[in-house]
Design a protein around this nucleic acid. Structure first.
Length: 195
DNA sequence: TATACGATCACCT
DNA sequence: GGTGATCGTATAC
């Protein structure tokens, strides 16, 4: 993939690749949420890759009513509800029939920061969107957006952001993953270290 | 039908 | 470093 057009959603081909590759490639891209005509956005700075039957940490380790969306076409938003009060946003990846998704764990706030602050009621700016539940709260992302096509939606999409140098990317084990040593230590979490 | 728990966060010490 | 909040989902009965 060479230069991507700005202000246009990333094409489906962007997501139709190996999930770990997409997780790394999403760093620096712009996550945009349009809420009552307002553009809320930020640059993605933390992601995690989740696979299918080969990944016990993934919702798609088994095919269930909730995880079936991860088995479908790439470029679709997978939103789930967790711990009774938070939502998490993923982008479905890989080829149709091969489950995979990238969890968006953090963004650097950009457009609409006033609204983000309102949604996060009193949180310090550095903690507005520095977690998967926090960014969903800040951007107003709920289960309503589960299944939205990120390549063709006026409410939620991802556009080309800033280039990220390889040396600015840190790979680490995923958060909250249990299971055997091999699963726990897969370096499938990617963090963009601002320089 | 029932129950245990989680890809989290805020607040406490 | 520890814990409570709070409910959808998976799995067991």
């Amino acid at each position: 993939m060479t230069t991507l057009p700005a202000n246009r959603p990333l094409p489906r081909a962007f997501y139709e690749r190996d999930t770990v590759v997409v997780a790394r490639a999403l760093l620096g891209q712009r996550l945009v949420r349009v809420l009552s005509g307002l553009h809320l956005s930020g640059l993605i700075c933390e992601t995690e890759a989740y696979g299918g039957a080969d990944d016990p940490a993934s919702h798609a380790y088994r095919r269930t009513p909730r995880s079936v969306i991860m088995f479908g076409p790439p470029g679709i938003a997978y939103v789930y509800f967790i711990y009774g009060m938070y939502h998490c946003l993923n982008a479905v990846t890989a080829c149709d029939g091969h489950p995979g998704a990238v969890l968006i764990r953090g963004i650097f706030p950009d457009e609409g920061i006033g609204t983000l602050r309102e949604h996060r009621s009193g949180a310090a700016d550095k903690h507005l969107t520095d977690g998967p539940g926090k960014l969903c709260q800040a951007l107003g992302i709920t289960l309503v957006l589960n299944g939205v096509d990120l390549t063709d939606s006026s409410e939620l999409f991802i556009t080309a952001g800033e280039p990220v140098a390889m040396r600015e990317i840190i790979a680490a084990p995923r958060v909250g993953v249990r299971g055997d040593e091999e699963t726990r230590t897969r370096p499938w979490r990617f963090v963009w270290q601002h320089s």
